[in-house]
Design a binder for these strands. Structure first.
Lengths: 208, 208
DNA sequence: GTCTATATGATGATAGAC
DNA sequence: GTCTATCATCATATAGAC
């Protein structure tokens, strides 16, 4: 029974332990942050020895850098819903966000990444630049107009707040609110934000 | 010269060290989180010995609990603007939030507290309960109606997103947007959120 | 490649002198 | 009340046997 070179997809010179360590490290770093997770615990959970981490990645920082290679890609989610009629953009965005974050796998990765962005300053800077260029910027150029980036920024903050309270902090009744109801409640507010400051405060009509 | 009891402002029986430790601990815990700050570093910055912390507060957790007694009080900010005509509530809330967070002192404390809430699970739970009971709950009972808490929650998420992107992550152009323009852009969206899901994107009416 | 053993240092907490 | 000295524990990292 296969003592070595099982099958033929993995030559003996190949290291499987490395990938195993990386998988565990990625999840642990994201969910708990850099400081709290120890090399020992990662090694234990990966079923290997702690010294292997230093052997493969040099140091804990080396492991962190190797494990943090794109856990999830928010800009690509946005790019999928940006095309199409401008009228339905708010609903498409909200539904896309909820779909991704409600998914256990992708949502978990994003949730963890969001937490990490607030602990580590480098991750925070990365996150800020991505938000400005890849999200607010994209929405703005889709909207067009003089103050498009400002309207897009307000709308983005609304989405960010929804994510923050519902998925990161799990505040009720947001956390347990059904998707359709949440869409119905967010879309009018998003429309108002995207319409800009010129709109009248009282009158609200979902103009078709 | 002056080996002890300098001047006479501090009687020998009184403990000033305790307050000094508390002041340093509060700031450090908020800015760096519970794990990262050590008792030794707090003691060094406070100009006292590390053993004094254990003497005065029993343990590091004891110090944390003592230092976390209201660094800033969001519910009281909300309570100041809740009374008054319902029509102007969105603007009053936005202006109050911006005023507090733009203030260097109070804003800095809140910013630090928000960061701490995302790192430490205990602070996060505390923050969540406060948000549900003292903020969403208060707004909901001010609004009245069947789904008041759900409308209040959506509105609260909008404010949270604004705070998050403008003050914590400092995302442009939100971070440098003038107060009045921000108010003008946020208020219509807040109104829409508080109005509820009456303006549905499709055929969704959760409420009969 | 993988493990055992260990070097080196920092942490929280405590006992006891003054 | 405050400090010195110390303990037990845990961390990262490395040297060397197999």
């Amino acid at each position: 029974m296969m003592n070595k070179s099982r099958g033929r997809g993995r030559p003996p010179g190949r290291t499987e332990t490395r990938e195993q360590i990386l998988a565990v490290a990625r999840r642990r770093f994201l969910t708990e942050g850099y400081d709290r997770v120890t090399m020992r615990s990662i090694a234990a959970e990966a079923g290997v020895d702690a010294a292997l981490i230093s052997y493969h990645f040099g140091s804990k920082h080396g492991l962190f850098g190797a494990a943090m290679e794109l856990p999830a890609n928010p800009p690509q989610i946005l790019a999928a819903v940006l095309p199409g009629p401008l009228e339905g953009l708010p609903e498409r965005v909200v539904r896309a966000v909820l779909t991704v974050w409600d998914d256990p796998d992708r949502g978990g990765a994003l949730r963890a990444f969001a937490r990490a962005a607030l602990v580590d300053d480098d991750v925070a800077r990365l996150f800020r630049e991505m938000a400005e260029r890849e999200m607010i910027g994209r929405i703005a150029e889709r909207l067009g107009g003089a103050d498009a980036s400002r309207r897009a920024a307000v709308a983005a903050s609304q989405i960010a707040g929804l994510i923050f309270l519902r998925y990161v902090l799990c505040v009720e009744p947001l956390a347990s609110m059904p998707t359709d109801e949440l869409v119905a409640r967010e879309v009018p507010a998003l429309r108002a934000a995207l319409a800009g400051a010129g709109t009248r405060p009282r009158d609200r009509r979902p103009r078709p």
